[in-house]
Amino acid sequence: MRIRILIIAALLNIVGAVAAQAHAFLEHANPLVGSTVASAPREVSLTFTQNLEASFSSVQVTDGNGARVDQGKPQVSGNTMRVGLKSLSAGTYRVRWQVLSVDTHKTEGSFAFTVGGR
């Protein structure tokens, strides 16, 4: 019984002393995830729940044929990553991102948005 109480106390001790970074989840995207926008955006902006390591975070945007339509290296500032876009015509585009939060947790994801009324 005494050993078990010691173990539970040790576990509670773990809970008591928390650091402060974690996996970076996508909190907000512009254009919105799954949205249809009337006019072609000039950039994709992704905001995460944690600050990012710029050197190890990336995003690419492709058209329906899989061709890249982003302008290359993204800009990372704090918890936000932006990438400029080429001139987009009407159609559906896919954003694929992969980020490393400042405490070295990797996360990834992808979503689509549509330009025009298609």
Partner: peptide, 9 residues
Amino acid sequence: PYLKSEIRD
């Protein structure tokens, strides 16, 4: 969370 970040927000 998956719906919001991968399918539609």
